[in-house]
Design a protein around this nucleic acid. Structure first.
Length: 429
RNA sequence: GUGGUCGUAGCUCAACGGUAGAGCCCCAGAUUGUGAUUCUGGUUGUUGCGGGUUCGAGUCCCGUCGAUCACCCCA
C-alpha cells in the first residue's frame, strides 16, 4: 500500500480509467466539431477575484484557493465560464458572431466527495456568444442531447429539464416584489420540492408571497408558456422536443443566469445532473466593466457523472467497451520463434511501425506458446512468426486461427492488405 | 461544514477477544515452433494510521485519515 495516497477527492488514472477518459474526451470533441464549435482553453489557475466577482456564494464557498509565494490570492477554477467571459470580451472584435466555442478542462471544487462528486473533475463546456436568440439556446440543448446520445445513451434513458428565469422575474414583477428579493426567492424555488412545505410557506410569506400562489403559477408554466414557444418550435423541427420536460423548479445555483436554464438528467438511476447550463446575457458586461455587452449561453457536462451513467446504461456500455478495446489493442504481435532471427524480427517491427501498424513483441527470449499468449492478451489481430524458415515468415489470423506464409520483403504490404479487410467480428449473435 | 456506515494481500472477501487465511490476479515450471484446460511452485500484509482497555486486540474504546450515504449543492 502506498504510504502517500492521492489528495482527497483527486483521482489516479490507471490505463483503464485513462482510456475511459480519453473516450469521453474524443466523443465530446467529435460532437462539438460536428456542431461547428471551435476549441479554446483557459488557465486552470485564476485570480480568486475572478470567481468572487461573478459566481455567487454557492461556488465561492467551494473555492480551491490558496496564496502564492508572491502573496497573490489565487484559485483553481471551479468552472470555466468566468475565464471564457474574460477571454471572449477581451478580443471579441477578432471573432465573427456568433462565437461557438468549446473547452474540455479540469475544474476543482473544495467540497465533500461522494459518488459522482469529486474535488477534481473534467468539464466539457460549450458556449455561444454574441447571439441572444432562442435559436442559440436550442442549438445548445440539441448539442447536449446529441452528445449524450453519441455515447449510446438512448432517449429513454435521459431527459432535459427546462425552465426560464424570466418567467419568475415576470411573476415577481406582477406582484410588485422588490428586485432585492429575487435571489432569495429563486433559492426557495430551487428547494421547493425538497424542503418542508411549512418552511417554504414561512420563507415565502417573509417576502410577501404564498406557497399556494407559487404552486398555482408553477402548474401554469407548462410547455405552452410563451417563454418556451420559439425554443419549442426549433427543437420540434429537429425532432428533439420530446426529450424536454418543462420544470419551473430548475433555476440553477449560479448567480449569473438570466433566461433559459436547463439540465440533463438520467431517468433510471437517480444520478446527479449530467449536464447543466443556461443563458447569461449580462456576464460579459460584468466581466468587462461594461465595455462589452455581449449576450451568451452555454452548458457544462462533467466526466464523473457521465462516466457512471455510461457504465450503468447497457447501450452506452457496449460502445464504451468496444472503444476501450480499440484503444488498447494492437494490430500485430511479432513472435520470435528462433532467437537467431531477433535482428530480422526487429527490422520488421520497425518497418511495420513506420507503415503505421500497431506492433508489439517480447523483449527477451520466450517460449513460442508464451508469445502467442501475449499476442492474445494484447488483443492482437495477427501474430507474425520469425523462425528458421526465414526469409519466409508466417502470418496468423488470431481470430480465424488461420495462417499463411509470406516472404519478408512483402510483409508490410501483406499486413496492410489484411488490416484493410474487415475484422472477423464476433460470430455469436 | 454536520450526521450515519465502512476500512484485512494488487482485487473480492474470511478469521468466537486467543498463532492472520482463501479464491482470483501476477511470475516461473510441467510444455525447446502456436493461443485452451489442468497441475506444481513462488511473490504480496507493520489488519488505513496513532493512542487506549486487556494476560492477550483484525475484533472493544478514543482520535485521525480515507471511502461511501444523507443533508447541502452541483459537473
Amino acid at each position: 500500500m502506498a504510504s502517500i495516497q492521492t489528495v482527497k477527492g483527486f483521482r489516479d488514472f490507471f490505463p483503464e480509467e485513462c482510456a475511459l477518459r480519453n473516450y469521453i474526451f474524443d466523443t465530446w470533441r467529435a460532437v462539438a466539431r460536428r456542431y461547428g464549435f471551435v476549441e479554446y482553453e483557459g488557465p486552470v489557475l485564476e485570480s480568486t477575484d475572478l470567481f468572487r466577482k461573478k459566481s455567487g456564494d454557492e461556488i465561492t464557498s467551494q473555492l480551491f484557493c490558496f496564496t502564492t509565494k508572491g502573496e497573490d490570492d489565487v484559485s483553481l477554477r471551479p468552472e470555466v465560464t468566468p475565464s471564457l467571459a474574460r477571454m471572449a470580451t477581451a478580443r471579441q472584435r477578432d471573432f465573427k458572431k456568433p462565437m461557438k466555442w468549446f473547452q474540455i478542462g479540469s475544474c476543482f471544487r473544495y467540497e465533500a466527495p461522494q459518488e459522482g462528486r469529486t474535488r477534481e473533475f473534467v468539464q466539457f463546456n460549450a458556449d455561444i456568444l454574441g447571439d441572444a436568440s432562442p435559436a442559440t439556446d436550442a442549438e445548445l440543448i440539441a448539442l447536449a442531447i446529441d452528445t449524450v446520445r453519441e455515447f449510446g445513451v438512448s432517449t429513454e434513458d435521459f431527459a432535459i429539464r427546462l425552465s426560464n428565469r424570466e418567467i419568475w422575474n415576470t411573476y415577481l414583477a406582477e406582484r410588485n416584489i422588490p428586485a432585492e428579493h429575487t435571489s432569495t426567492f429563486l433559492q426557495i424555488i430551487d428547494k421547493i420540492e425538497r424542503a418542508k412545505p411549512e418552511d417554504t410557506e414561512n420563507k415565502l410569506s417573509a417576502i410577501g408571497l404564498s406557497l399556494a400562489d407559487v404552486r398555482a403559477f408553477m402548474a401554469s408554466a407548462d410547455e405552452n408558456h410563451p417563454a418556451f414557444a420559439a425554443l419549442r418550435e426549433n427543437l420540434t423541427a429537429r425532432g428533439l422536443w420530446q426529450q424536454v420536460r418543462i420544470d419551473a423548479t430548475i433555476v440553477r445555483g449560479l448567480a449569473y443566469y438570466t433566461g433559459t436554464v436547463f439540465e440533463v438528467f438520467d431517468l433510471k438511476h437517480g444520478l446527479r445532473a449530467v449536464a447543466g447550463g443556461g443563458r447569461y446575457d449580462r456576464l460579459c458586461a460584468l466581466m468587462s466593466d461594461g465595455k462589452v455587452d455581449m449576450p451568451a449561453a452555454g452548458f457544462a457536462m462533467g466526466d464523473v457523472v457521465l462516466g457512471i451513467l455510461l457504465k450503468k446504461t447497457p447501450g452506452a456500455q457496449m460502445k464504451l467497451t468496444s472503444a476501450l478495446l480499440a484503444s488498447s489493442s494492437i494490430d500485430a504481435y511479432v513472435v520470435v520463434a528462433d532467437e537467431a532471427q531477433r535482428s530480422n524480427a526487429l527490422a520488421a517491427v520497425q518497418a511495420l511501425r513506420a507503415a503505421g501498424v500497431r506492433v508489439d513483441y517480447s523483449f527477451g527470449a520466450q517460449k513460442v506458446g508464451k508469445q502467442f499468449q501475449a499476442a492474445e492478451d494484447r488483443k492482437a489481430r495477427f501474430a507474425i512468426t520469425f523462425g528458421a524458415e526465414y526469409p519466409e515468415v508466417v502470418i496468423k489470423n488470431l481470430l480465424a486461427r488461420s495462417q499463411s506464409a509470406v516472404a519478408v520483403d512483402g510483409l508490410v504490404a501483406e499486413v496492410q492488405r489484411l488490416l484493410s479487410e474487415p475484422a472477423l467480428g464476433p460470430l455469436i449473435a
